[in-house]
């Protein structure tokens, strides 16, 4: 695995979606809001895993003020998407993944493959080689 580049934010698992779409009323008529992987990660650590901002900033290997900016920006983007009925699309941004994650396009699971060479990675459940490398750094 390549070394962690400077100024990047360590993210553990990738989001299990490529985006969200509103339904009803003005659904589908508006420009998407782009949410970065690291913004999603900041929000998940604080508001789903219930870490403090200080714990979460350590996990992501960034300073506390940088973490606070990411977290605020995640919340504002999601509020914007909700308030204006805009879809959300996730983008890689400056996330550095602690692990390479794969998504199996055949059965839709996510997995890591420690110690396995890229060319011989297969889905551990359905054996498919139709994989998306989500988080190659």
């Amino acid at each position: 695995m390549s070394p962690r580049p400077k100024n990047n934010r360590t993210v553990f698992d990738p989001p299990k979606f490529k985006g969200y779409k509103p339904f009803g009323y003005y659904a589908g008529e508006n420009e998407p809001v782009f949410l970065f992987f690291e913004e999603y990660a900041a929000l998940k650590l604080c508001d789903y895993e219930l870490m403090t901002q200080s714990q979460a900033s350590q996990v992501m290997n960034i300073s506390r003020p940088t973490f606070t900016r990411l977290y605020e920006s995640a919340r504002r983007k999601i509020a914007l998407a909700l308030a204006e009925a805009r879809p959300i699309e996730v983008e890689k941004g400056r996330a550095y993944f602690s692990n390479d994650w794969y998504n199996c396009r055949a059965c839709n699971i996510f997995f890591t493959a420690p110690g396995i060479e890229l060319s011989s990675v297969r889905c551990p459940l359905c054996q498919s080689k139709n994989l998306e490398e989500i988080t190659t750094n």
Binding site: E49, V59, F110, F111
Partner: peptide, 22 residues
């Protein structure tokens, strides 16, 4: 799903993680 702290430990132990969202 896996919590972040557990992911760190599993990474260190070289254990493969499989997330089955369904």
């Amino acid at each position: 799903d896996f919590g972040t702290k557990v992911q760190q430990l599993l990474n260190q132990g070289q254990i493969q993680m499989i997330i089955h969202p369904d």
